Computed example of a mutant assay.
Amino acid sequence: FAASPYLFGLARRWPEHLRAFLRDGPDVRLVEVLVRTEAMIGGADEMKGPLRRLKGELHLLTALADLGGVWDLDQVTGALSRFADASARAALRAVAHDQRERGKLISAPDDPRGPIPGLFGLAMGKHGADELNYSSDIDISLFWVPEVLTAVLDDSVEPQRFVDRIAHAFSTLMQDRTGDGYVFRVDLRLRPDPSSTPPVVAVPFALTYYEGVGQNWERAAFIKARAMLGDENEGRAFLQALTPFIWRRSLDYPAILDIQSIKRQIHVHKTGEGLEAAGANLKLGRGGIREIEFFAQTQQLILGGRDSNLRTPRTVDALAALRDAGHVDAEVCAELTAAYVELRELEH
């Protein structure tokens, strides 16, 4: 831990946790951390500290398992992604609790449709594919179903303002820095036309947007999308409705040319910057992580409309599927997979 003041500080701060991790093993302790996170109740103020301390425990045990060679890359990224799911769900429960206490939300706390029926979030990017790394932010796209949500709000509540307040409170709870750090940085920009739309987009508008003017880079982003938060049944129905948009059976030549520029389009959309990076850059540099990811995604976009076996969110699985379908040589697949795993481990 000498090279990581953060991990060294956690180990010194919580020697009892360190002993427990070493005694019980990471798998047992991971389940215990997730169970405690999923069992959290109360409002945002009550959850702020505990959520951040649980994140610290998760990072400490994951680092021990990673550096000690107990977990491989998939287990490391899987643990981080599972905690991202659990903490995001806890945060949404907390902000829903606060709105229920204020009389704005009238659904039952244990409503099977989720904390706020009609509101759902899609995990996007590495989060959606269960590929998070230690420093990842989480990309979440938030949507609401007007006829469902309106029915569970007090008559005095304007739905769009309500969901926008929920998004703000959710992001604040997850990413505000305190003495215990933060849980995850949250990026809500992977939504239709983020410069001119509210943080939570109504489903009818979103479907019209994607079907009418959706871009190929947005199709690529949805390859990794997963209904994760809130009313997950509505989230899965939304993704099902987008299937013809994401997975087109035929593409014209200009569309294929546009797909080839997806890497630059997504990077500029996310950062507002170009792709030039000084020195060696594991993620953005030539032959880096992002080039391997977008090689797989562009092949999926071109070929996945006619072959559903190629519609997998994880990069390594996508490379294997392309190999099995005869689109990538076995030697190339093995070389790209080995490079991807090594680069991701170095990234950590």
Rank of each mutant, 00 (worst) to 15 (best):
R36M: 09
R248D: 01
F120P: 12
E331R: 13
D307A: 12
K263P: 02
E147R: 15
P159I: 08
L22T: 12
V341E: 11
C333V: 01
A167E: 03
I292M: 06
D27G: 10
A255I: 03
D155A: 15
A255F: 01
R323L: 04
I302K: 02
L282S: 08
E347Q: 12
R219T: 04
P199Q: 10
P50F: 11
P115L: 04
E147L: 14
P109V: 03
R36V: 02
N281W: 00
L22G: 05
D111M: 02
R161V: 14
E38V: 09
I292D: 07
P50A: 13
H168A: 15
V163N: 00
Q260H: 15
I302E: 03
P198E: 07
L80I: 13
L319K: 01
V200G: 03
L34W: 04
A221H: 06
L92G: 00
Y6V: 07
S107R: 04
G118C: 08
L34T: 01
L336Y: 06
D72T: 15
T315N: 06
V316F: 06
V186A: 03
E273D: 03
G69N: 11
A237E: 14
L119A: 02
L239K: 04
L30H: 07
V76T: 09
T62P: 08
L301H: 00
I259F: 02
F222H: 08
S195G: 14
G69P: 12
I41K: 15
W71R: 01
T298Q: 15
E291I: 05
A202E: 13
R93K: 10
A90T: 06
A2N: 05
A237G: 08
H269A: 15
G214W: 09
V332F: 03
Y6I: 07
Q160F: 08
H267A: 01
A320G: 11
E342S: 07
S250I: 11
L60Y: 11
F120M: 13
R165E: 13
P112Q: 05
E293M: 07
I106Q: 09
A325G: 00
T298W: 02
W217N: 02
S107H: 05
F143T: 08
R53N: 11
G235I: 03
